[in-house]
Amino acid sequence: MMKKPNYYSNREFDRLDHLRDDPDWLQSMLTTEKCRLLPVWRNQHLVTPDPLPVSYPGNAAGALLELAEDQILLGRDTQGLIWLALDISQLEQPDAALTGQDELRFQDLRSIGPLLDRHTGALLAHARAMAYWHRHHRYCGVCGSPTLSTRAGNMRLCSDPECQQAHHPRIDPAVIMLVHNGDYCLLGRQPAWPAGMHSTLAGFVEPGESLEDAVAREVSEEAGIRVANIRYHSSQPWPFPSSIMLGFYAEAASKEIQVDGVELESAGWFHRDQLLNSPENDQFRLPRRDSISWRLIETWMHAKHGA
């Protein structure tokens, strides 16, 4: 049985890969009401006070299309709407250029993500990730020449005719793991996190390393714990700025914690009942509810016989 998808993922969304090389189709869509345009400004989305994302129908947003540095086809939702992200990061005052309505504002998905439904969160995450990738790949990594957006914003091509290197969207794989021992699990804290927040350990996968090796290495480096019986749970897109989080459970083969003092400022073993009754205050709180870290902890907390 397929697991419930993690937040920011949406398997029902059709990314329309077969239409990305059809500029005539895209141009015809841009002038219809069923085409919805999502402005993205420096990793932020235009939202109402609710908050709900603001989008514009293609047949009433010609000026917005002209403002965009990049037009990025995202895909089609289950209602048949075609979604495009428009990067307007070059504007210094985007609110005035778009609407002039004081109640609308640009906000980072980090601050509003937990308040959105899963499908809306996934759509904004997709738009944010693609806009970020475009802004950081303006020049060819092979020859340094400017790159051009192609395939409806899903590829960039080097403009040098002697190079013509194709650049595809990239994400950074990272492992995130709940280490457990009986009715206790290992949680750590980074100094930059909100007051009291504790979470699972995580880290980026290095070249030449399997996912399981990355799990074992990160736990050893950050907390001095050896692990065994590493098992995959699920994954989550995490566009902050461009990661894919690969979730695991692992059993502790040792229990003495030695915090590295760099990635973590503290770590400890927490009983299942303690987490089930977490006070959620500045002394102790669990991670944000839109994160895979919360999903790993929640599943383990309610398991009858371990993770």
Results as ranks from 00 to 15, higher is better:
Asn10Pro: 00
Phe13Pro: 03
Leu26Gln: 15
Met29His: 08
Gln44Thr: 15
Pro49Ala: 07
Pro53Asp: 08
Leu64Tyr: 07
Glu69Pro: 05
Asp70Ser: 09
Ile72Ser: 05
Ile72Asp: 05
Leu84Lys: 05
Ile88Leu: 03
Ser89Thr: 14
Pro94Met: 08
Pro94Leu: 09
Asp95Ile: 13
Asp102Ser: 12
Glu103Met: 09
Glu103Ser: 12
Gln107Thr: 10
Pro114Leu: 02
His119Gln: 13
Ala122Glu: 03
Leu124Ile: 07
Ala127Ile: 01
Arg128Ile: 01
Tyr139Lys: 07
Gly141His: 08
Gly144Arg: 08
Gly144His: 06
Asn154Gly: 08
Glu162Phe: 10
Ala174Tyr: 10
Ala174Phe: 06
Ile176Lys: 10
Met177Val: 15
Val179Asn: 04
Gly188Thr: 04
Gly188Asn: 09
Met197His: 02
Val205Asp: 00
Asp213Met: 12
Ala214Met: 03
Glu222Gly: 06
Ile230Gly: 06
Tyr232Met: 01
Met245Gly: 03
Ser254Gln: 05
Ile257Val: 05
Gly261Ala: 03
Val262Ile: 07
Ser266Thr: 13
Ala267Ile: 03
His271Asn: 11
His271Ser: 07
His271Cys: 03
Arg272Asp: 03
Asp273Tyr: 09
Ser278Cys: 15
Gln283Gly: 14
Phe284Glu: 01
Leu296Asn: 05
Thr299Asp: 14
Ala303Arg: 06
Ala307Val: 08
